[in-house]
């Protein structure tokens, strides 16, 4: 098996935030923790694009490089995970991550930063697989059940793909070849007219008085 990766197809993402909801539900993350979020560029303008972002499980992860307690590890499948018992909540990984993936719960009345929390690719953490401890600290472990991350599996438009990098890139390649690009995309001309110009408004019917 190659490496597990996420791939978000910005042509398909409709900013429904279903992935965000699915993630929160599966992992029961506390208030304020967003392991996954949807980022929209050019919001409200024709041709706006949205992408669902979480930990990208980097092959050369900067969070791993900067961690002073070496609490990160990479599984054989390429999933970057961490041991919360080892984490001191320093926040270095947050500054190092280009995707803003590490999240820190605000604990106590004075907003003390808690231990880091991030997307686990629904692979749990270094506790007994499927145990209550694992679920409490890291959330669900779907990978051990032979399933893929819930965010991708329940994506309504299948914009978010997760799994073996070779397989999902092949799915995306086939999709991109079939649908074409730019004005060839289904629905583009109906919505925006040729070459991105607004479609002419339908002729108004005269109202009989």
């Amino acid at each position: 098996m190659a490496r597990m990766k996420f791939l978000c197809d910005s042509e398909r993402c409709i900013e429904c935030n279903g992935c965000v909801t699915a993630c929160k539900n599966e992992n029961e993350t506390p208030w304020g923790i967003q392991r996954r979020r949807v980022v929209t560029l050019g919001d409200g303008l024709p041709g706006e694009k949205s992408v669902s972002v979480a930990c990208m499980h980097c092959s050369d992860a900067p969070c791993m490089a900067v961690c002073p307690t070496d609490c990160f590890y990479r599984t054989d499948e390429g999933v970057v995970l961490h041991d919360k018992d080892q984490c001191i909540g320093c926040g270095y990984c947050f500054y190092a991550c280009p995707f803003g993936a590490p999240q820190f719960p605000q604990e106590g009345n004075f907003g003390i930063r808690g231990k880091m929390d991030k997307c686990t690719f629904c692979a749990g953490g270094p506790e007994k697989d499927g145990s209550a401890d694992e679920h409490q600290k890291y959330g669900g472990n779907r990978l051990a059940e032979g399933k893929l991350p819930l965010c991708a599996e329940m994506c309504s438009t299948k914009a978010l793909l997760a799994g073996d990098a070779d397989v999902i890139s092949e799915i995306f390649r086939e999709r991109a070849l079939t649908r074409g690009k730019g004005g060839e995309l289904w629905g583009w001309q109906q919505a925006y007219g040729k070459d991105g110009a607004p479609a002419p408004a339908p002729a108004k019917k005269e109202v009989q008085k």
């Binding site: 609490c71 990160f72 599984t75 041991d83 692979a123 697989d129």
Partner: peptide, 20 residues
């Protein structure tokens, strides 16, 4: 030489051990 330090946390089981 900059190398990532060795992981110092608990060991994790393989994902195919518990259910498979």
């Amino acid at each position: 030489v900059q190398t990532v330090g060795d992981y110092r946390g608990k060991t994790d089981a393989k994902p195919y051990e518990a259910n498979y």
